[in-house]
Simulated assay, not measured.
Amino acid sequence: MINVVRTMLVSRPVRDAVAYFADFAHAREWDPATVSCVRLDQGPVEPGARWRNVSRFRGRTSEVSYRLDVLEVDRLVFTGENGSVLITDDLRFTPVSADSTRLTYRATFGFKGVARLAAPFLRKDVNRLADDVAAAVPRVTGL
Protein backbone atom coordinates (compact mmCIF):
# COMPACT_ATOMS: atom_id res chain seq x y z
CA MET A 1 0.00 0.00 0.00
CA ILE A 2 1.19 3.50 -0.79
CA ASN A 3 -0.03 6.60 1.07
CA VAL A 4 0.62 10.18 0.00
CA VAL A 5 -0.41 13.44 1.63
CA ARG A 6 -0.16 16.91 0.13
CA THR A 7 -1.41 20.25 1.43
CA MET A 8 -2.19 23.13 -0.90
CA LEU A 9 -4.05 26.43 -0.99
CA VAL A 10 -7.24 26.91 -2.97
CA SER A 11 -8.42 30.45 -3.73
CA ARG A 12 -12.05 29.70 -3.00
CA PRO A 13 -14.10 29.71 0.20
CA VAL A 14 -14.53 26.25 1.76
CA ARG A 15 -18.08 25.86 0.49
CA ASP A 16 -17.06 26.63 -3.12
CA ALA A 17 -13.92 24.47 -2.89
CA VAL A 18 -15.93 21.48 -1.68
CA ALA A 19 -18.50 21.98 -4.45
CA TYR A 20 -15.75 22.20 -7.08
CA PHE A 21 -13.84 19.10 -5.95
CA ALA A 22 -17.03 17.10 -5.29
CA ASP A 23 -17.58 16.93 -9.04
CA PHE A 24 -14.79 14.51 -9.84
CA ALA A 25 -15.09 15.40 -13.55
CA HIS A 26 -13.00 18.46 -12.64
CA ALA A 27 -10.04 16.09 -12.16
CA ARG A 28 -9.24 16.87 -15.82
CA GLU A 29 -8.31 20.36 -14.62
CA TRP A 30 -6.36 19.65 -11.41
CA ASP A 31 -4.83 16.21 -12.01
CA PRO A 32 -2.22 16.36 -14.81
CA ALA A 33 -2.37 12.56 -15.18
CA THR A 34 -6.10 12.58 -15.98
CA VAL A 35 -6.84 12.22 -19.68
CA SER A 36 -10.63 12.21 -19.26
CA CYS A 37 -13.16 11.95 -16.47
CA VAL A 38 -16.84 11.44 -17.24
CA ARG A 39 -19.82 11.22 -14.91
CA LEU A 40 -21.55 7.85 -15.27
CA ASP A 41 -24.87 8.80 -13.68
CA GLN A 42 -27.09 11.86 -13.48
CA GLY A 43 -28.57 14.07 -10.84
CA PRO A 44 -27.01 15.96 -7.98
CA VAL A 45 -23.45 15.21 -6.93
CA GLU A 46 -24.02 13.24 -3.75
CA PRO A 47 -22.71 10.05 -2.13
CA GLY A 48 -23.02 7.24 -4.64
CA ALA A 49 -22.28 9.43 -7.69
CA ARG A 50 -19.88 7.69 -10.09
CA TRP A 51 -17.24 8.69 -12.68
CA ARG A 52 -15.00 6.90 -15.19
CA ASN A 53 -11.50 8.33 -15.00
CA VAL A 54 -8.88 7.59 -17.64
CA SER A 55 -5.35 8.46 -16.53
CA ARG A 56 -1.85 8.09 -17.82
CA PHE A 57 0.63 6.64 -15.33
CA ARG A 58 4.14 5.46 -16.16
CA GLY A 59 3.39 5.71 -19.88
CA ARG A 60 0.29 3.56 -19.72
CA THR A 61 -3.35 4.52 -19.85
CA SER A 62 -5.69 2.99 -17.29
CA GLU A 63 -9.36 3.34 -16.47
CA VAL A 64 -10.57 3.62 -12.88
CA SER A 65 -14.20 3.77 -11.75
CA TYR A 66 -14.66 6.33 -8.96
CA ARG A 67 -17.50 6.72 -6.48
CA LEU A 68 -18.18 9.57 -4.08
CA ASP A 69 -18.52 7.97 -0.64
CA VAL A 70 -18.48 10.97 1.72
CA LEU A 71 -19.75 14.50 1.10
CA GLU A 72 -19.52 16.74 4.15
CA VAL A 73 -19.18 20.51 4.54
CA ASP A 74 -15.39 20.15 4.93
CA ARG A 75 -14.56 16.66 3.63
CA LEU A 76 -14.87 14.49 0.54
CA VAL A 77 -13.94 10.83 0.14
CA PHE A 78 -13.78 9.09 -3.23
CA THR A 79 -13.06 5.42 -3.88
CA GLY A 80 -11.58 4.39 -7.22
CA GLU A 81 -11.14 0.84 -8.38
CA ASN A 82 -10.12 -1.32 -11.29
CA GLY A 83 -8.69 -4.84 -11.54
CA SER A 84 -5.29 -3.94 -10.14
CA VAL A 85 -5.78 -1.06 -7.67
CA LEU A 86 -8.11 0.33 -5.02
CA ILE A 87 -7.63 4.08 -4.48
CA THR A 88 -9.06 6.19 -1.68
CA ASP A 89 -8.90 9.97 -2.05
CA ASP A 90 -9.67 11.78 1.21
CA LEU A 91 -9.90 15.57 0.81
CA ARG A 92 -10.21 17.81 3.86
CA PHE A 93 -10.91 21.52 3.66
CA THR A 94 -9.95 24.13 6.26
CA PRO A 95 -10.73 27.84 5.93
CA VAL A 96 -7.68 30.11 5.79
CA SER A 97 -9.56 33.33 5.09
CA ALA A 98 -12.94 34.36 3.71
CA ASP A 99 -11.81 33.49 0.18
CA SER A 100 -9.12 30.84 0.57
CA THR A 101 -9.01 27.26 1.81
CA ARG A 102 -6.31 24.81 2.82
CA LEU A 103 -6.85 21.47 1.09
CA THR A 104 -5.25 18.41 2.64
CA TYR A 105 -5.27 15.66 0.04
CA ARG A 106 -4.61 12.10 1.19
CA ALA A 107 -4.49 9.29 -1.34
CA THR A 108 -4.10 5.62 -0.53
CA PHE A 109 -3.23 3.13 -3.26
CA GLY A 110 -3.88 -0.52 -2.44
CA PHE A 111 -2.62 -2.77 -5.19
CA LYS A 112 -4.29 -6.09 -6.03
CA GLY A 113 -2.95 -9.38 -7.31
CA VAL A 114 0.46 -9.33 -8.96
CA ALA A 115 0.39 -5.51 -8.89
CA ARG A 116 1.04 -5.81 -5.12
CA LEU A 117 4.53 -7.02 -5.95
CA ALA A 118 5.23 -3.83 -7.88
CA ALA A 119 4.02 -1.47 -5.11
CA PRO A 120 7.47 -0.77 -3.62
CA PHE A 121 8.76 0.17 -7.07
CA LEU A 122 5.82 2.50 -7.74
CA ARG A 123 6.22 4.65 -4.62
CA LYS A 124 8.48 7.21 -6.33
CA ASP A 125 6.10 7.58 -9.30
CA VAL A 126 3.06 7.90 -7.04
CA ASN A 127 4.85 10.62 -5.05
CA ARG A 128 5.69 12.45 -8.28
CA LEU A 129 2.03 12.21 -9.30
CA ALA A 130 0.99 13.71 -5.93
CA ASP A 131 3.54 16.50 -6.40
CA ASP A 132 2.08 17.26 -9.83
CA VAL A 133 -1.43 17.49 -8.35
CA ALA A 134 -0.17 19.76 -5.54
CA ALA A 135 1.40 22.06 -8.13
CA ALA A 136 -1.65 22.12 -10.41
CA VAL A 137 -4.40 22.75 -7.84
CA PRO A 138 -3.34 26.31 -6.92
CA ARG A 139 -2.95 27.17 -10.63
CA VAL A 140 -6.41 25.99 -11.64
CA THR A 141 -8.08 27.54 -8.60
CA GLY A 142 -6.48 30.93 -9.17
CA LEU A 143 -3.54 31.10 -6.74
Results as ranks from 00 to 15, higher is better:
D16G: 05
A17D: 04
V18A: 10
V18H: 07
A19G: 05
Y20L: 13
Y20A: 11
F21H: 10
F21Y: 10
D23P: 03
F24R: 08
A25W: 00
A25G: 05
H26S: 15
R28Q: 15
E29M: 06
D31E: 07
P32A: 07
P32G: 11
P32S: 10
P32Y: 06
S36V: 11
C37D: 13
V38A: 14
V38K: 01
V38L: 13
R39K: 06
R39I: 08
R39S: 05
L40K: 00
V45K: 00
V45E: 02
E46Q: 15
E46K: 14
P47D: 12
P47T: 10
A49H: 01
W51K: 08
W51D: 14
R52Q: 12
N53R: 13
V54R: 06
V54G: 07
S55L: 08
R56L: 03
R56W: 01
F57C: 02
R58D: 07
R58F: 06
R58P: 03
G59C: 00
G59D: 05
R60P: 06
R60A: 14
T61N: 03
T61P: 00
S62D: 09
S62C: 02
V64F: 06
S65Q: 10
S65I: 15
Y66P: 02
L68R: 01
L68T: 06
D69H: 05
D69R: 11
V70Y: 02
V70M: 08
L71T: 10
E72L: 14
E72V: 11
V73N: 06
V73G: 09
D74A: 10
L76K: 04
L76G: 00
V77N: 03
V77H: 05
F78I: 07
T79C: 07
G80H: 03
G80E: 05
G80I: 06
E81Y: 02
E81A: 01
N82V: 01
S84K: 05
L86K: 02
L86S: 10
I87Y: 00
I87K: 09
T88F: 04
T88M: 00
D90I: 01
D90P: 05
L91H: 13
L91K: 04
T94N: 05
S97I: 13
D99I: 14
S100C: 02
R102D: 14
L103T: 08
L103W: 02
T104R: 08
Y105K: 04
Y105Q: 09
R106D: 13
R106Q: 12
T108D: 11
F109E: 13
F109I: 11
G110L: 01
G110P: 00
G110A: 13
F111G: 11
G113Q: 02
V114I: 11
V114Y: 07
A115N: 02
R116S: 14
R116G: 15
R116L: 15
A118F: 15
A119G: 10
A119F: 04
F121V: 12
F121N: 05
K124M: 13
V126D: 04
N127D: 15
N127T: 08
R128F: 09
L129E: 02
A130S: 14
V133C: 07
A134S: 12
A135L: 08
